[in-house]
Simulated scan of single mutants.
Amino acid sequence: MRCVAVIPARGGSKGLPRKNLRPLGGLPLVARTIAAAKAARRVDAVYVSTDDAEIAAAARAAGAGIIERPAEISGDAASSEAALLHALDVLEGGGSGAVGTLVFLQCTSPFTGADEIDACVAALGSEGVVCSFTAAPDHGFLWTTGAAGEAVGVNHDHTAPRKRRQDLPPQFRETGAVYAMDAAAFRAAGSRFCGKAAIVPTGGPPIEIDDAADLALATAILRSRTESADDVPRGVKALVMDFDGVFTDDRVLVDETGREAVFASRSDGMGLTRLQKLTDIRLLILSKEPNPVVSARGRKLKIEVRQGIDDKLPELDRWLAEHRLARADAAYIGNDVNDLACMEAVGFPVAPADARPEALAIARYVTAKPGGQGALRELCEKLIEAAARDR
């Protein structure tokens, strides 16, 4: 039976109006969550349950199916469970087959990763587990107030000598990002916690965006990820590059004879030249399109070109083997769905700022610049800085 991800996304929001459409890193929050779900290997289909036409349009553009959420379960008091049960009714009543596993994702957790989603799904079925969820380890001292208003320790005896943090019992805080459930158990219980549960620890920032301050914090975290040279690992020995959308802005000029021309960045060319002079990193352009423009750009920059490649990963593996390099040694920058296999395979996947959501979701580094407009120059300078740290 299918594993289906459902993302409830109402149009209304009190703390942060139009929250699910707020952009983070150039993508609406709903699109970021869709991208993570689509990149998960164990998820067969992704749907957004919404009462809002604008959210539905953004979700379709990001590649999700739409479940129209009735007004009676779209108000402030409506539960996520109500939306999920309605989604199951729609999906299973539409003749597309039974749902075996239901994954519940929230737009308010902007750093959800495909690996976390897969881990939650994988936890089901083991030793009777029927539900799982992501949680962050929490080593804090928790307090509450007693009947007389006094402070009382929750996970520690405040009247006893103070314990070290590492001696506290293990505890976790729900991130609110991912919940996975056996669909039948969920239907029977009507709750995301529908039986024996498993915790899936996560190391990502456990941020839930409920107000403007949360969004500002998420923006700062994302900016620090893309601006810090330390985000680029040491030891990269090869840089493999898609062409369209990386060397170019993904547009093509076609005249009446069918001749094509593209826009490329001189700054990108300078960055690649500097990378060749200042490091030992090997370079390859790996392109789906067989186009003289690709060959000409490769000759100009003295970079090997392999083009007309529909299935890029086998060709990438052949090239790496020829140079006695491992996948873990390579960086790959791509912008579209036909780059995903290579991005998932290499040690350091990179995407330009304007890449497809699926590519952004699995990239370890997202450039601040878009493709064809400085993305490669930015990446080259980061790689040069990282190589200098090795010396």
Rank of each mutant, 00 (worst) to 15 (best):
A218F: 12
E174H: 04
P161V: 09
R164L: 14
A198T: 02
A188M: 04
A197V: 11
D157L: 00
F186A: 09
F186R: 05
E208K: 07
R187N: 08
K163Q: 14
G195V: 10
A177V: 01
P161K: 13
L168G: 01
E174G: 10
D214Q: 07
L215N: 03
P161A: 15
Q166V: 14
R164K: 12
P205K: 03
A160M: 14
A188F: 12
S191T: 14
H158Y: 07
V200H: 01
G195P: 04
A185W: 02
A180R: 03
D211N: 15
S191L: 14
Y179H: 15
L222A: 11
A216T: 08
V178A: 13
G190L: 13
V154C: 05
A160P: 07
A213M: 01
R192Q: 11
E174A: 14
Y179K: 01
Q171R: 15
G195S: 11
Q171P: 06
A189R: 11
C194K: 01
A160S: 14
P206F: 05
K196S: 13
A197M: 10
Q171D: 04
R165P: 00
Q166L: 14
V200E: 00
P170F: 14
P161F: 12
S191A: 15
L222G: 07
G204C: 08
A213Y: 01
T175K: 02
D157N: 04
T159G: 03
D214P: 01
A212P: 01
G190F: 12
